[in-house]
């Protein structure tokens, strides 16, 4: 009897019966929607609030004067935005140049201490970056890299390599080894088999790792502060100083600028990161 009522969704739908679960289900999903969209709505409200203080539930006056202030030639948001995108693009190029060979080797070739090497890339994520960045800043100061774009890019590459290498490794191990061997057996060189077979098949995963690195670079705050500021202005630094100064409107507008690319990626991520790649991350 129970097996009749609760087989697959497809057959279950053919038996019309009153589903008493719609109420708790709706409540839970509604609560989840509030938890996720409530804070985002609150942020958007702040970007157009001219005046808003306790105990008013909604802003007293709406307007775009803060937007004008952010995007005015005098404001430094445009410069920060351009810098952030430029740094992130360079970071992606450098990180992928390092991660593609490394990921291929970790996925395909026999490596001594493979687990340890994978863990090594985790180190930048495993240590509170602050004291490390302070020491990097000292080192870069001696090399003349402090306060330059290349210096910031190098810090971001180090920070993003864990995503780049781990996802690239997963992407390459999800590619069927036999396809590569088939190409080799009909006479393709190792390099040719890699370029024409393995690389295109791993491309969606590599694309995902590129976007991850791009977003990590946009997000990165601590390293930019110690190595970049005050010469290289980036969006997270602008957001932090505005927020610390109590200017919630400017901080919220900057936060919104950082949000848009993140949410755009979230909406398309499954096109790049298939389940077979995801299930191999960290193996």
């Amino acid at each position: 009897m129970t097996s009749l009522a609760t087989t697959t969704p497809a057959t279950g739908r053919r038996l019309p019966r009153i589903d008493l679960w719609w109420l708790p289900r709706g409540l839970v999903l509604g609560l989840l929607a509030f938890i996720i969209f409530g804070p985002l709505t609150n942020l958007v409200l702040w970007t157009v609030a001219e005046r808003w203080y306790f105990p008013h539930a909604l802003p007293l006056e709406y307007g775009f004067s803060y937007w004008q202030r952010v995007f005015s030639p005098r404001g430094n948001a445009m410069e920060s935005l351009a810098n952030s995108v430029f740094v992130a693009t360079l970071t992606v190029i450098a990180a992928l140049a390092l991660a593609v060979p490394a990921g291929y080797a970790l996925a395909r070739l026999k490596l001594p201490l493979r687990s340890l090497i994978l863990i090594a890339f985790l180190i930048p994520q495993a240590f509170p970056n602050l004291p490390v960045y302070v020491n990097i800043a000292r080192l870069f100061y001696g090399l003349g890299l402090n306060g330059t774009i290349p210096g910031v890019v190098l810090v971001h590459v180090t920070h993003g390599l864990v995503y780049a290498v781990w996802i690239a490794t997963a992407a390459f191990s999800a590619v069927d080894r036999e396809l590569e061997e088939a190409a080799r057996s009909i006479g393709a060189s190792a390099l040719r088999a890699f370029r024409d077979v393995t690389l295109p098949l791993a491309a969606p995963g590599l694309m995902a790792s590129a976007i991850f690195v791009f977003l990590e670079s946009l997000d990165e705050f601590t390293g930019s502060f110690f190595v970049g500021a005050p010469d290289v202005n980036l969006l997270p630094l602008l957001l932090y100083t505005a927020g610390a100064g109590g200017n919630y409107q400017i901080a919220s507008i900057t936060a919104l600028l950082l949000l848009v690319p993140s949410i755009a990626f979230m909406l398309v991520v499954e096109r790049f990161l298939k389940a077979d790649v995801l299930s191999r991350v960290g193996h």
Binding site: L29, G38, N42, L43, P236, L239, Y248, S252, S262
Partner: peptide, 20 residues
């Protein structure tokens, strides 16, 4: 629904939840 916060930077999460 569940994936919306996935790639939102920490610094933005801080600002978003500070207001919320």
């Amino acid at each position: 629904l569940y994936r919306w916060p996935l790639f939102i930077p920490f610094i933005v999460v801080g600002q978003v939840l500070r207001t919320f």
